[in-house]
C-alpha cells in the first residue's frame, strides 16, 4: 500500500471515530447484560457499575426460569429457523438450477416471477395469509411460520444461487451426462457441493430476520405452546414490566442465542456481504 495515503494523525482520528461509534453500538447491550446480574437496589443506585460480591444477584434469572417457559420458546425458534432455512436452501437451489441450467419456454418469465418477492414485503398479504392458515387449520402451528418464512426467503435465494450456478462449468455437467447420470444426480452430486459457499451466504442472510421476526409469530402463532423466543420475551417483558430484574434477565437471555450465532457465523456473513452477493 502506498505511504502517501496514510499519515499518523489521520489514523489516530480514524481510531477515535471508530472507538466512539463502537462504544455507542455496544453500550446498551453492555448496560442490559451487566445489570441483569445485580440486585434490584444496585440496578437503581449504581446502574453503570459492574456487579460485585455485594450487588451480585441472580433473582431476575430465577424469576424468568420460574415464570416463563424460555426453554420451550428457544426450542420453537430453533425448529422454525432451522426447518425454514433447510427448505429455502433446497427449494431455492432446485429452482435456481432449473433457471440457470436449462433453456425452456418461459425461463425469463419464471425468473422474473420469482424475483418479484425481493422487493415486495410478504407482510402486505398478511390478512389473506391468516385467512388461509385458518382455513387449512395451520394457525398456532410452527408449520404456518415455516411456510411463511420459506416463501419470504425463496426469492432472494433463487436470485443469488442462480448467479452462482451459472458459473459451474458445463464440461463437468456434460461429463456427468455422458457417464449416464440423471439430471437429478447431476444436481445433487455435482452442482450442490460446488455452490456450498453461496448456500452458506443465503442461510446467514435469512437466519437473523427469521429468528428476530415478531409480526408473524404474533399473528399466526401466538399460543403458548408455539411461541418463538422473540414473541415469548416480548410477552414476558410486557407482563413483568415493573420487575426490572426479570426484564433485564429476559433481555439478556434473548440476546445470548443471536450473539452466539453471530460470533459463529460473522466471518461468513461479512464475506457474503462484501463478496457482492447483494447487488
Amino acid at each position: 500500500m502506498s505511504r502517501a495515503r496514510t499519515n499518523p494523525l489521520n489514523s489516530v482520528a480514524a481510531h477515535a471515530a471508530l472507538i466512539t461509534y463502537t462504544l455507542i453500538a455496544l453500550f446498551p447491550v453492555w448496560v442490559i447484560v451487566t445489570n441483569s446480574f445485580k440486585s434490584r437496589r444496585a440496578i437503581f443506585s449504581e446502574p453503570l457499575a459492574l456487579p460485585d460480591a455485594d450487588s451480585f444477584s441472580l433473582i431476575g434469572y430465577q424469576t424468568v426460569m420460574r415464570q416463563g417457559d424460555f426453554v420451550l420458546y428457544f426450542q420453537n425458534s430453533m425448529i422454525v429457523t432451522v426447518v425454514s432455512l433447510a427448505l429455502i436452501l433446497i427449494f431455492g437451489a432446485m429452482a435456481a438450477f432449473a433457471l440457470a441450467e436449462y433453456r425452456f419456454r418461459g425461463n425469463t418469465l419464471w425468473g422474473l416471477y420469482l424475483a418479484l418477492g425481493i422487493m415486495i414485503p410478504i407482510r402486505i398479504g398478511t390478512v389473506a395469509i391468516l385467512q388461509g392458515m385458518v382455513a387449512t387449520g395451520l394457525v398456532n402451528t410452527l408449520a404456518a411460520l415455516i411456510l411463511v418464512y420459506t416463501a419470504q426467503g425463496l426469492p432472494l435465494a433463487v436470485f443469488i444461487l442462480s448467479e452462482f450456478m451459472r458459473q459451474v462449468s458445463d464440461d463437468l455437467k456434460d461429463a456427468g451426462r455422458i457417464d449416464g447420470l440423471s439430471e437429478y444426480r447431476i444436481f445433487f452430486r455435482l452442482v450442490l457441493p460446488l455452490v456450498r459457499p453461496a448456500m452458506a451466504t443465503v442461510a446467514v442472510f435469512n437466519m437473523i430476520p427469521i429468528w428476530n421476526d415478531l409480526w408473524f409469530p404474533l399473528i399466526l402463532a401466538p399460543a403458548e405452546q408455539v411461541k418463538t423466543l422473540t414473541l415469548g420475551s416480548q410477552v414476558f417483558i410486557g407482563q413483568f414490566v415493573t420487575d426490572w430484574n426479570a426484564v433485564l434477565s429476559a433481555l439478556s437471555l434473548a440476546v445470548l442465542p443471536v450473539l452466539v450465532l453471530y460470533i459463529v457465523f460473522s466471518r461468513q456473513l461479512i464475506r457474503g456481504i462484501t463478496s457482492g452477493a447483494v447487488k
Partner: peptide, 20 residues
C-alpha cells in the same frame, strides 16, 4: 426442480397478496 419453490412461493406469498 421448479415446482416446490413455485408452489410454496405462489401459495403463501403471491396469492395472499392478490387476495388481500
Amino acid at each position: 426442480f421448479l415446482a416446490p419453490a413455485v408452489l410454496v412461493y405462489s401459495a403463501v406469498m403471491i396469492l395472499p397478496l392478490f387476495d388481500t
